[in-house]
């Protein structure tokens, strides 16, 4: 029974990774851009949510807010931050001249933003983890000897619902078709009358939304946030994205869950620090021997840097 419990925990943990992994896979798939600000967008929503629920709005504008509006504003802040990144990062992606270093420009620039956002939060709030309180902090569902916390189920359901919605958006709507056409071939998309310049911010809004939501769910789930919360989750989400295959939304979901499972089971069987080897070792082996992952296309991300 213990092992079933571990598997359940792994899936729940994977649920957190899913949103972030999907954000990574969207920017890679549509823009061919490895966006390193994604982990801090995740962290921003959690930390801003905590800050609002602890201090209230800045400059003493309000009393501490409730947990739900706090996280809502946190998510909006993550989206705004993502748009700031678009304005100063992706814009220069367009000026490609077929050069290795030039293709790395948005990647390097996003690493700059990673530092900016992370250290802004560190300067404002210090590096200590902070407790985040929600009404269902210790509401557990017990069933046949298994324990599942309500927030865990909530977060898994919300994650999957968002991704399912996103997948619908990509498949069914005009916007989704434009996004997919841009992913296939940006030049052809322009010829087809798609305004790529308008599509790009949409990707960044989605990125901010997905990361913000994942950050909010993390806060609810674990009842704790910290300026470093994005680092581990972000890198694990990258692993999940690669395992699923770059550019594949469903792959990112499967990959996120696989990483969650691998991590929990590895900790269960080999001890607390072993997940570092199993998750990254799995990723490394996959990259070397099946680089397109479980569901990915061969073409994505192969372009020279």
């Amino acid at each position: 029974m213990l092992i079933v419990q571990q598997i359940l925990n792994g899936i729940m943990l994977g649920g957190i990774y899913v949103g972030v992994a999907v954000a990574f896979t969207l920017t890679i798939g549509i823009l061919n851009f490895l966006n390193f600000t994604i982990p801090v967008l995740f962290m921003l929503s959690g930390m801003i949510g905590w800050s609002l629920s602890f201090y209230g709005l800045p400059f003493g504008l309000s009393e501490p807010l409730g947990w739900l509006p706090s996280l809502g504003i946190g998510i909006i802040c993550a989206i705004l931050a993502s748009l700031v990144v678009e304005r100063f990062t992706y814009r220069y992606f367009k000026a490609k001249h077929g050069d290795a270093t030039e293709h790395a420009i948005p990647l390097v620039s996003s690493l700059g933003f990673l530092l900016i956002f992370e250290y802004m939060v560190l300067i404002a709030h210090g590096s200590d983890p902070r407790g985040f309180h929600t009404p269902f902090g210790d509401l557990d569902l017990r069933f046949a000897g298994l324990v599942i916390s309500i927030p865990q189920i909530l977060s898994l359901v919300v994650s999957l619902a968002i991704v399912a919605g996103l997948s619908m958006l990509l498949r069914r709507t005009q916007l989704g078709r434009a996004l997919r056409a841009t992913a296939e071939n940006p030049d052809a998309a322009v010829l087809m009358g798609i305004e790529v310049n308008r599509i790009v911010p949409v990707v960044f809004v989605l990125t901010g939304l997905l990361c913000g939501l994942a950050g909010a769910l993390f806060a609810v789930n674990y009842g704790e946030v910290s300026p470093y919360m994005g680092d581990q989750v972000g890198t694990k989400a990258i692993a999940g994205m690669v395992i699923g295959g770059l550019g594949s939304v469903w792959g990112a979901i499967a990959g996120g869950l696989i990483v969650g499972l691998t991590e929990t089971l590895s900790i269960h069987f080999f001890g607390a620090t072993s997940a570092q080897i199993t998750v990254w070792g799995l990723l490394l082996v996959l990259l070397l021997f099946r680089p397109k992952g479980l569901f990915g296309h061969n073409a994505i991300g192969k372009g020279k840097f």
Binding site: I238, L246, S274, Q276, L284, L287, L288
Partner: peptide, 27 residues
């Protein structure tokens, strides 16, 4: 093995390599 990969994949493979090295030391 790393040179089998290109572009973003190489960036990620080298990154994963470093994480594995650290993981081995840690354990």
């Amino acid at each position: 093995p790393i040179l089998r990969t290109r572009g973003v994949y190489m960036v990620l493979a080298t990154f994963a390599f470093a994480e594995v090295v650290v993981g081995i030391i840690l354990n």
